[in-house]
Design a protein around this nucleic acid. Structure first.
Lengths: 242, 242
DNA sequence: CCTCGCTATGTCGTAGTTTAATGCAGAGAA
DNA sequence: TTCTCTGCATTAAACTACGACATAGCGAGG
């Protein structure tokens, strides 16, 4: 688990290259150098224009939008290493809310430092746009899944994405990854009802593909899971030349 | 209609501040300084890493992803002033394809100029990230619509978005805006079948809210349209304090 | 103990898909 | 001109995946 700000991605891209660790931590608001959010806490609200940005060091959360009719669309999952509040740093206002689903420790820094980065370290600023582009990429993939797949494929797809990302983060132990979400969260992410999500999960369980309980996802057949939640990004079929 | 590169948004944000118009246009590949795409042409393919970026000056198109099973998810509509290929400029590879649905004229420039921008004009580079953030915002809104709304709301939402954006571009004449897309495009954007999209459009027509024919959308009751495609971005209801 | 939040499962109605058939305008050929 | 072909809009009928509702179980916390 990454609990040291040494691993903070903003440090990796050089925002803090010339700073000591004490300077890195945003000290004025929270007594510890790190901001700790408790489960169920709203870290940033849609429409808020926070003067702080965060990077998740440990723990997980989710990004969501709320619609006029009260329904909720989960637009992403926050894993260790992810940015929080980049939109508010760039656009001045968050376009979605962020909530912690576990205890989260975050590295906090001022929005003004982002502008310093652009002024003083163009290479790092350029790198930073990769982060924004990656976020957009994940959103596009999710849109394709929500728009085109049926229930079983949606659930398999999102579980497979969790499994893949968490494995890449080194959080995979014997095909088990932490998954501290409720079925309602997955349902709101994939545009399904809670009941249907539950039944689809039961189907996957019956097939022996995955089990998910106690905030832990166990993938018994990774290849079958990937097969069910078939991927996007395929070149369109060639149009017949005649 | 914007047909002059003076209006190119990249010029507006200063990429070409010190350049003459002739320099602005990318001359080596196309005889005219502007790249012209014919209807139905694929401008950039998913997975491609083009060395050129474009901004749409005139005409419209759409962004889409293709899934393994052959289905298509439209992830956005390209209107005059939009960027094309920003992702390939930043990440090196396009995450979706772009196709022209009308004759499109575009301003072409080299990817390397993007890096020059970051090196020499940090303020402009910072502005540029607004563009990326805006694209992400639109994607998030669309995800919420596709994931949470029912058929009627989806169609009303996307028509209302067209109407709003095109009005902002000054393309609204007597509540009529150009809409050079097929019903299939709208269906693929909102995750509905062509048939159901058609029926829903018929419903809106019967209600006297909109008519859409000959690539022209006429909105008879803008407020009712906005009402039907209710918006996102609402603050979540306060949790009861008790 | 009871309540609350979450998971689990069955029944039923409907919104949406699939398939198919019709119409209609534009383009190309004779 | 007239015929045909092609792409798109339209409408109907049959089928189904999914949502709504109801109900039960289970563990945590007051």
């Amino acid at each position: 688990m990454k609990t040291d700000c040494e691993h903070c991605p903003l440090r990796q891209i050089g925002l803090f290259e010339e700073m000591t660790k004490d300077e890195v931590h945003y000290m004025s608001r929270f007594k510890t150098g790190e901001f700790v959010a408790q489960p169920g806490t709203e870290i940033l609200a849609e429409g808020a224009s926070s003067s702080q940005l965060y990077t998740a060091l440990d723990g997980m959360g989710l990004r969501y939008k709320t619609l006029e009719d009260g329904s909720r669309q989960v637009v992403g999952f926050v894993l260790p290493g992810d940015f929080i509040g980049l939109q508010s740093g760039v656009m001045g206002e968050m376009r979605h809310s962020v909530e912690a689903t576990t205890r989260m420790t975050m590295c906090v820094f001022n929005r003004s430092e982002l502008w310093e980065l652009f002024k003083n370290q163009p290479r790092r600023a350029f790198d930073l746009t990769h982060v924004a582009a990656t976020e957009e990429f994940l959103l596009g993939e999710m849109l394709a899944a929500v728009g085109q797949m049926d229930g079983l494929a949606k659930i398999a797809w999102v579980l497979n994405r969790f499994f893949t990302r968490l494995t890449a983060l080194g959080l995979n132990e014997n095909d088990q990854v932490p998954l501290p979400y409720r079925q309602q969260d997955v349902a709101d992410a994939m545009g399904l009802s809670l009941v249907h999500t539950n039944k689809t999960l039961a189907k996957l369980r019956a097939k022996g593909v995955v089990t998910w309980s106690d905030d832990t996802l166990t993938v018994h057949r990774p290849d079958e899971l990937a097969q069910l939640g078939f991927s996007t990004g395929v070149k369109p079929a060639q149009r017949p030349l005649i």
